[in-house]
Amino acid sequence: MRIHEPNRIGMMNAYNKTGNAQVGKAGKIAMGKDEVNISPEAMEMLKQVEDPDSPQRREKVDLLKKQVEEGTYRVPSEKIAEKFLSFWKNR
């Protein structure tokens, strides 16, 4: 078993050099901003969703939660396919 491989130290030095971040005036590390981009298709889908605070939607969500917990929730694959097709045809 070789403990001191010649390339291992060079690789460690290269790794350590990349970890050095630029430090600003206040001694803090400059960080980039996180960014989220929502596609126009996703925005269109959001517009089609019911009002989340409506009583009808709350009832529907409660019923679905109950079915999922009991293991009785089933969605026909035909309905899923229809929704996908109608969405993609309307683009």
Rank of each mutant, 00 (worst) to 15 (best):
residue 64 L to N: 01
residue 73 Y to A: 14
residue 7 N to H: 11
residue 71 G to S: 05
residue 60 K to V: 02
residue 5 E to A: 05
residue 58 R to E: 01
residue 11 M to V: 06
residue 19 G to M: 14
residue 33 K to E: 13
residue 65 K to C: 04
residue 10 G to I: 08
residue 67 Q to E: 09
residue 84 F to N: 14
residue 77 S to A: 10
residue 75 V to F: 10
residue 68 V to A: 01
residue 28 K to W: 11
residue 21 A to P: 02
residue 12 M to E: 13
residue 38 I to S: 09
residue 62 D to M: 01
residue 42 A to I: 12
residue 53 D to K: 14
residue 46 L to I: 10
residue 71 G to C: 08
residue 49 V to I: 15
residue 76 P to V: 09
residue 19 G to P: 02
residue 33 K to I: 06
residue 90 N to H: 08
residue 30 A to Y: 04
residue 52 P to M: 05
residue 42 A to W: 04
residue 25 K to A: 12
residue 86 S to K: 15
residue 80 I to V: 15
residue 6 P to W: 06
residue 25 K to P: 14
residue 69 E to N: 07
residue 44 E to C: 04
residue 77 S to P: 01
residue 17 K to W: 03
residue 16 N to I: 11
residue 3 I to E: 13
residue 52 P to F: 05
residue 2 R to P: 11
residue 71 G to E: 00
residue 88 W to K: 11
residue 26 A to K: 00
residue 24 G to P: 06
residue 10 G to T: 05
residue 26 A to M: 01
residue 36 V to C: 09
residue 35 E to M: 10
residue 81 A to R: 11
residue 86 S to N: 13
residue 10 G to P: 00
residue 6 P to M: 12
residue 24 G to W: 05
residue 37 N to S: 08
residue 83 K to T: 10
residue 47 K to S: 03
residue 17 K to E: 01
residue 89 K to D: 12
residue 59 E to C: 00
residue 15 Y to W: 10
residue 79 K to D: 12
residue 17 K to H: 04
residue 29 I to R: 10
residue 77 S to D: 14
residue 14 A to I: 06
residue 85 L to Q: 06
residue 56 Q to L: 14
residue 80 I to K: 08
residue 64 L to M: 13
residue 78 E to L: 13
residue 34 D to F: 03
residue 88 W to R: 15
residue 4 H to K: 05
residue 20 N to I: 07
residue 28 K to N: 07
residue 70 E to G: 08
residue 70 E to I: 02
residue 23 V to M: 03
residue 22 Q to G: 03
residue 35 E to V: 04
